[in-house]
Amino acid sequence: MKKLLQVDTLPKHIDVAILIARIGIAALMLTHGLPKLSMLLSGEPVQFLPFMGLSQEVSLALAVFAEVFCSILLLVGFATRLAVVPLIITMLVALLMVHAADPFQMKEPALHYLLVYVVLLLTGSGRYSVDYLLQSKADRKAFSLSN
């Protein structure tokens, strides 16, 4: 678990690139998630893809969790590697189920999001994040000495 949340010490320009990717993709995903949150809270009948036997309401709630809550975590860089997992799953569902029969142009946005989320899963949140601030100084120093 400790390694999962560990932030690697990278050159500063790489950390800036991760920061830009993290904030940019989180902000863009919020534009998809906030309308879904409004739909969920509206009290009106839900029109959403029922996924794997789940009701439309539960499927929508899971999408809202990923697209809003996980995007906020991503925005501040808290538990980044954990936060992108639901986002990756959501984009796989969008790519392989929601837009399965659509032309590539309709699948492309989900694929773009998916690629950035996979990169963030591999890189973590970078130096400019809550994850980095929470990581103890001793852990950061030990890591930088080992590299």
Results as ranks from 00 to 15, higher is better:
15 D>S: 14
6 Q>E: 11
17 A>W: 02
113 Y>D: 07
57 E>H: 08
114 L>N: 03
103 P>Q: 15
109 P>S: 06
47 Q>I: 07
66 A>D: 08
84 V>C: 01
125 S>F: 04
51 F>R: 02
121 L>E: 06
63 A>E: 05
72 I>M: 12
34 L>H: 08
134 L>R: 15
4 L>H: 12
27 A>F: 14
119 V>N: 03
46 V>I: 15
97 M>C: 13
85 V>R: 05
86 P>V: 00
75 L>H: 02
75 L>P: 04
36 K>W: 07
65 F>H: 02
20 I>M: 04
112 H>S: 13
65 F>T: 09
6 Q>S: 14
95 L>E: 10
17 A>P: 07
46 V>K: 03
17 A>I: 04
65 F>E: 05
1 M>Y: 08
14 I>R: 07
72 I>W: 03
135 Q>M: 09
31 T>G: 06
48 F>Q: 08
62 L>E: 00
30 L>Y: 02
78 F>D: 05
145 L>I: 13
47 Q>W: 02
123 T>Y: 11
18 I>Y: 01
91 M>Q: 11
92 L>F: 10
19 L>I: 00
88 I>W: 03
71 S>L: 02
137 K>Q: 13
6 Q>P: 12
13 H>L: 04
77 G>Q: 09
86 P>Q: 09
69 F>W: 12
111 L>I: 05
37 L>K: 06
13 H>Q: 12
125 S>R: 03
126 G>R: 00
110 A>R: 08
106 M>A: 15
40 L>I: 05
103 P>M: 12
141 K>I: 03
